[in-house]
């Protein structure tokens, strides 16, 4: 851009332009390739998406004609189940190849970075969530808290422990010293139980991941570098 803005400001404006669909196809494509590996940019985009969605608040809901409901279900599930499930995917793919604009592609791109794998399933309605991201984006973990079970469901989208080292998860509540929630397994999905006394203190707390010897910190406090931190936020 020709107007001089500090880089962070330029990105804020750029994310807004992208959310509004104002970028040229080339600019949008460049933004999307950055989105895929810049968590901070994803946060900026998500903020704009949330705020701009409020522009639809004054739009009155209009019940669609009843036959549309049936049409959608038939399109997705009509006829033989397995065949239509595949067809649904194909139709979508054709649609994608058809006239898809950059703004729509963004969603695809963001979500494609974290395709589901086998493992513990995240809670349907997490009470708290946190995004842990390393400054250099080499590690990216999302956490969702299942209040009923008192557990965090973790999904590691990027990064792993260095060879012969372990990633240890910490809960930091208020000014207290970090409390270990355990060493992360190799699997990308995991869940960890939060000790009972800490469950009431998650609001405003933070999760962090540190680099530790295999088996975890020998001292009960982080001994290696803190690789990623994320604030726990109320959903």
């Amino acid at each position: 851009m020709s107007d001089e803005m500090p880089e962070r400001d330029a990105d804020k404006a750029l994310a807004g332009e992208y959310a509004l669909g104002l970028l040229s196809p080339e600019e949008a494509a460049a933004f999307e390739s950055r989105l895929a590996h810049e968590p901070e940019l994803r946060v900026l985009y998500a903020q704009w998406a949330e705020d701009l969605a409020a522009l639809t608040d004054p739009i009155a809901p209009v019940a669609p004609p009843v036959h549309l409901h049936g049409a959608v279900m038939t399109r997705l599930f009509g006829g033989d189940d397995a065949a239509t499930a595949r067809e649904g995917g194909l139709q979508w793919f054709r649609w994608l190849l058809g006239g898809l604009t950059a703004s729509v592609l963004a969603l695809v791109l963001i979500f494609a970075t974290g395709l589901p794998e086998r493992g513990p399933q995240p809670p349907d309605a997490p009470a708290y969530v946190a995004q842990l991201a390393a400054e250099d984006e080499s590690l990216l973990i999302s956490a969702a808290y299942d209040a009923e079970a008192g557990r965090f469901h973790l999904e590691r989208a990027r990064g792993e422990a260095a060879s012969g080292r372990a990633l240890e998860l910490w809960l930091i509540a208020g000014d207290d010293a970090p409390v270990s929630l355990g060493v992360l397994p190799e699997a990308r999905r995991a869940s960890v139980t939060v000790p009972e006394p800490l469950r009431a203190r998650l609001d405003g707390a933070a999760l962090a991941v540190s680099d530790e010897p295999e088996g975890g910190s020998p001292t009960g406090a982080p001994t290696g570098a803190v690789l990623a931190v994320g604030a726990i936020t109320n959903t």
Binding site: A46, P116, S142
Partner: peptide
Amino acid sequence: YVRIWNHAGRYQVNGL
């Protein structure tokens, strides 16, 4: 809605 069905699995990680 076809798209929502096909992409529901990706909702969890998007931050929105």
